[in-house]
């Protein structure tokens, strides 16, 4: 059986909120290492990969591999009933029909309990190859969100060019063009404001802004976002969570003109 207790419901609320517009039905794969999720969007352009390590829960117990097929719209409805600060416990039997969610208020004696019916989801897992990326950029997640939103006002797509000069986000649209360039930057007082660019060779790729703006819904999960790029491979957008847990998005590039 599965029993996983999260100190704050907020974490799951934010994760589900960040992915629910991208994927609708998905398996939460539970085993003794934690709870994982991998799903593609309907157009097969983007892939979300979530890992909530067992260390992110206290306690965490999962004796066997259990796949919880959950509709994220249903999960969102139930998670809305949880306060951000509530303690959240997920429970399921070994061959479950439902997943049980318990929300406990730390301040009051209120305990709420919900069951969500599970779905049988036949989901194919994709093998994600280990990649030595040509460029890795760590930057404030709010900055990345702002750049994507600003450029989306002009164009459907953005080119991300990484060179010794820095990283340049550029777009061209009907009304004109725009770009934002960031250079490496260290803020001793506020490390979450750092921009770090690790480059082994120059990269230039084009991506759909609609997807990137969608990924940025995860911004509240982490002060920093990591972008990993290599020519001709999907972009990796990673939001690191505590205890080596993570929320990753992969986005296939667009073909250049």
């Amino acid at each position: 059986m599965l029993e996983a207790r999260l100190e704050q419901a907020n974490l799951l609320k934010k994760v589900v909120d960040a992915i629910k517009d991208l994927v609708q039905d998905c398996n939460f794969d539970c085993n003794d290492s934690g709870i994982a999720l991998q799903a593609m969007d309907n157009s097969h352009v983007a892939l979300v990969s979530m890992m909530l390590k067992s260390e992110s829960f206290s306690p965490f117990r999962c004796d066997r591999n259990i796949a919880l097929g959950i509709n994220l719209t249903s999960l969102t409805k139930v998670l809305r009933a949880a306060q951000n600060e509530d303690i959240l416990t997920l429970k399921a039997e070994d061959a479950p029909d439902v997943v049980n969610l318990v929300f406990e208020s730390a301040e009051s004696d209120r305990i709420s309990e919900y069951d969500i019916k599970l779905m049988d989801i036949d989901q194919e897992h994709l093998g994600i190859p280990e990649t030595e990326y040509a460029a890795t950029i760590s930057m404030p997640s709010a900055e990345f969100q702002r750049i994507c939103r600003d450029l989306m006002a002009l164009s459907e797509s953005v080119s991300i060019e990484c060179s010794k000069e820095g990283v340049k986000f550029a777009c061209q649209g009907d009304i004109g063009s725009g770009s934002v360039t960031l250079r490496s930057h260290t803020n001793v007082d506020k490390p979450e404001m750092n921009v770090e660019i690790d480059l082994t060779e120059p990269v230039s790729l084009t991506f759909s802004l609609k997807y990137l703006v969608g990924f940025c819904k995860a911004s509240s999960l982490s002060g920093q976002v990591k972008l990993c790029l290599s020519n001709e491979v999907p972009l990796l957008v990673e939001y690191a969570l505590a205890n080596n847990s993570y929320l990753r998005f992969y986005l296939a590039p667009k073909i250049g003109d």
């Binding site: 593609m40 759909s208 296939a252 667009k254 073909i255």
Partner: peptide, 14 residues
């Protein structure tokens, strides 16, 4: 999406 590659072109089904 026009000119958009698929993620399946990069990651293989297990």
């Amino acid at each position: 999406v026009k000119n958009q590659k698929s993620i399946l072109g990069f990651f293989q089904k297990k």
